[in-house]
C-alpha cells in the first residue's frame, strides 16, 4: 500500500519533470498534424547520428512505422536538417543537457505524453533495431494488433550487442549500409538476470560488454533489458531510459509461472567504425550515465584495438535463430 503510494508519487514527479522540460525542446519541423489515429509512432533522441539515420529511418519505415518524433540534441553534423527534410519526421532541437534531462528520458516522456496517447509507441535509439517474432513476414501492425487482441500493453525487447569479427574500427561503415553486414556477431548465452524488487522488471546484464570490459566488476555492466514498445496512455512514464516504466504493471512482460510471453530483441549496432569518434566526444562531454564509466571502458578497449569476438560468438541469421537460442520468444503467437 505504502509502496504503491510512493510509486504513484514518483510517477507524478517524473511527469511533472517532463512537463517542466517542455520548453527545452523547440520544434524544428512539426508534422504531427499528419498523425492518424491508428498510426505506429517512433520516438528517439539523436546526437550526431547523421551517418546512421538513412538506414535507421528506412528500417522502421519498412516495418510500418508511420511517423517519427525525434529530438536532436545539438548535432553538428547536419542531422537536424536531414531529419527536417523527411516527410514523415517531426524534429525538435535542443541544446540543453542530455544528462540533466535524465539521459533524454524527460524529453521522450514529454513527447510521448503529448503525442503518444492511444498509439503504439516505439522508443529506441538510432543504433537499436527491433526484431520481433515473424518480423520477416509480418509488419509491426500485425504484432500490435495481436497485442491489442490479447490485452497486452507493452512488449519487451532486450538489447543484443552486435559486433564485428575484428576490432570495431577495422571495417568502415558508410551511410545507408546495413550495419549488421559488418557487426554480424553476438553472444548467445551469457546473460545474467535478476528481478527488480520495487519496479518488478527484470534486470538483464551480460553479453560481450560484460564479458570483455566488466569481467571484474559485473555489477557495473550495462543493463540490457528494455521495453521499447508500449500502447501509450498519458499517465505512463519511462523511469530510466526505456528499461522500466511506471505504472509498474507495464514491466510485467515476463511469465513467472514457467510459461513464455512474447518478446523480441533490439539489435544494437553500436560497435562500428563510427564508435571511435563518438567515444572521444562523449568522454569530453561527460553527459552519460554514472560518470560515463561505460565510455571510459570503451576508450580503453578501442585504444588496445580489442575485439569482442571469441570462438563461441554466434553469427546472426534471423529472428528464428534468436528464438531457438532462447533470447526471445514467440509466446503463443503463431
Amino acid at each position: 500500500m505504502l509502496t504503491s503510494y510512493r510509486l504513484r508519487l514518483r510517477r507524478r514527479r517524473l511527469r511533472l519533470r517532463a512537463f517542466r522540460k517542455r520548453r527545452e525542446i523547440e520544434a524544428r519541423a512539426d508534422r504531427t498534424a499528419a498523425i492518424r489515429p491508428a498510426d505506429i509512432l517512433l520516438f528517439a533522441t539523436v546526437r550526431n547520428e547523421g551517418v546512421r539515420l538513412p538506414f535507421f529511418l528506412d528500417y522502421y519505415r519498412r516495418l510500418g512505422v508511420r511517423h517519427f518524433l525525434i529530438v536532436d540534441n545539438a548535432s553538428t553534423d547536419g542531422s537536424a536538417d536531414y531529419l527536417a527534410a523527411q516527410p514523415d519526421v517531426s524534429v525538435w532541437t535542443t541544446g540543453a543537457s542530455y544528462k540533466r534531462a535524465r539521459f533524454g528520458a524527460d524529453w521522450m516522456n514529454r513527447l510521448l505524453s503529448r503525442y503518444g496517447h492511444g498509439h503504439w509507441c516505439l522508443t529506441v535509439d538510432a543504433d537499436e533495431f527491433l526484431v520481433y517474432p515473424f518480423c520477416d513476414t509480418r509488419p509491426l501492425a500485425a504484432l500490435t494488433d495481436w497485442l491489442d487482441g490479447c490485452g497486452l500493453r507493452s512488449f519487451p525487447a532486450m538489447i543484443l550487442d552486435m559486433y564485428p569479427e575484428g576490432p570495431v574500427d577495422a571495417v568502415p561503415y558508410s551511410a545507408g549500409q546495413d550495419p549488421f553486414e559488418i557487426a554480424a556477431w553476438f553472444d548467445s548465452g551469457n546473460y545474467m538476470i535478476s528481478r527488480h524488487p520495487l519496479y518488478l522488471n527484470l534486470w538483464i546484464q551480460g553479453g560481450p560488454r560484460a564479458r570483455t570490459m566488466f569481467a571484474d566488476r559485473p555489477e557495473q555492466a550495462p543493463s540490457l533489458n528494455k521495453i521499447p514498445l508500449v500502447k501509450w496512455r498519458r499517465p505512463y512514464v519511462y523511469v530510466s531510459s526505456t528499461h522500466m516504466l511506471l505504472p509498474r504493471g507495464l514491466n510485467l512482460v515476463y511469465d513467472d509461472r514457467g510459461g513464455e510471453k512474447p518478446s523480441g530483441c533490439l539489435l544494437h549496432a553500436k560497435f562500428l567504425s563510427t564508435m571511435g569518434e563518438k567515444v572521444a566526444e562523449e568522454l569530453e562531454r561527460g553527459e552519460h550515465f554514472a560518470g560515463s564509466r561505460e565510455y571510459q571502458a570503451y576508450a580503453e578497449a578501442l585504444g588496445s584495438r580489442q575485439s569482442f569476438w571469441c570462438k563461441w560468438s554466434e553469427r546472426y541469421i534471423n529472428w528464428r535463430q534468436l528464438e531457438i537460442l532462447g533470447l526471445m520468444s514467440k509466446g503463443n503467437w503463431a
Partner: peptide, 29 residues
C-alpha cells in the same frame, strides 16, 4: 500442431531457460 505448440510455449515454456520473458522463481520448477 502449430497452434497447440503455441499454447504449450505460452503456458509451459521451455524448461531450463531463463530469459527476458520467462523467469520463474526457483521454487516453481
Amino acid at each position: 500442431r502449430l497452434f497447440s505448440q503455441a499454447t504449450e510455449r505460452r503456458t509451459h515454456g521451455r524448461p531450463g531457460l531463463r530469459m527476458q520473458s520467462r523467469f520463474p522463481p526457483n521454487w516453481w520448477e
